[in-house]
């Protein structure tokens, strides 16, 4: 039970995200309760339009207009200034996008070095760090290629290298293998599970059920709500409660209580 003593990395309570107003009002997320602890590898599954990507954007502090509570490292996000949020994105969060999102006018090494700019690292140091990380991804011979000169698998490896260059503690991956063949997917997933083993928290959105085998916890979503959660389901089974529709609040209470004790 020692793991519960540290505040969870992410804690969501009745999180809602509304689009439109009045009659056109529509909830992309409709009451999400979720706690993710450090070192978890969470896979979020669900049909298109169920709010997976919206959830990921909110977790990554890109979307601030939310209802409900979001605590990051025990601190409510609403109380963090925009500038500090940008800093958190820079130092603690690594994004891997579905469509890679490399800056097309910059070459590979500059793309990888991009996050380091906002940490205030000098150009030479940036390039050294970026070069080091590219070597880990066996891309050091492609450093000065432009993104359009690379294959899909290589581009995604560059994108992952970029997400990791700041050594973030949380990695948010939005369908990291979405556009790749199964062999490239496998390589990418090996990388991610390697990162997980090194103690990073990984939250991955995916369509592909086979990829969930790499994850330590699988969440399925429908219509802006969490439908199943392997972790709470197991807990529930242990506490022999109802079969479906997990209630993460149970888990949350425990987490917050232990945090309170610590304080």
């Amino acid at each position: 039970m020692s793991e519960t003593k540290i505040p969870p990395v992410i804690r969501l309570k009745d999180l809602k995200k509304r689009f439109g107003i009045g009659d056109a009002e529509n909830f992309a997320l409709n009451g999400i309760d979720l706690t993710i602890k450090k070192g978890e590898f969470v896979a979020i599954m669900g049909p298109s339009g169920c709010g997976k990507t919206t959830l990921l954007n909110i977790l990554g502090l890109l979307d601030q207009s939310i209802d409900g509570d979001y605590e990051l490292d025990g601190q409510p996000v609403v109380s963090i200034s925009k500038r500090r949020q940008a800093r958190i994105r820079s130092r603690q969060i690594g994004f891997i996008f579905q469509n890679f999102n490399l800056v097309s006018r910059l070459n590979v090494i500059e793309n990888v070095a991009l996050p380091l700019i906002y940490k205030g690292i000098t150009r030479t140091k940036r390039l050294i760090i970026a070069s080091d990380i590219l070597r880990n991804f066996h891309l050091n011979e492609r450093e000065y290629y432009m993104p359009h000169q690379l294959s899909g698998g290589q581009i995604q490896r560059v994108a992952i290298a970029r997400a990791l260059v700041n050594e973030p503690s949380i990695i948010l991956a939005d369908e990291p293998t979405g556009n790749l063949d199964s062999r490239s997917s496998h390589v990418i997933m090996e990388e991610l599970s390697d990162l997980h083993k090194r103690g990073n928290t990984i939250i991955m959105v995916t369509h592909n059920p086979r990829l969930t085998t790499y994850a330590s916890r699988v969440i399925t979503m429908t219509d802006g709500k969490i439908e199943t959660d392997t972790k709470t389901t197991i807990l529930k089974r242990k506490t022999s409660k109802a079969k479906h529709s997990p209630n993460p609040r149970h888990h949350n209470k425990r987490a917050s209580k232990s945090r309170g004790n610590k304080k």
Partner: peptide, 16 residues
Amino acid sequence: TREIGIRKALGASNSD
């Protein structure tokens, strides 16, 4: 615009 989005996601603040 897209580059701006990427930079923001990677930690650029508005003033950056």
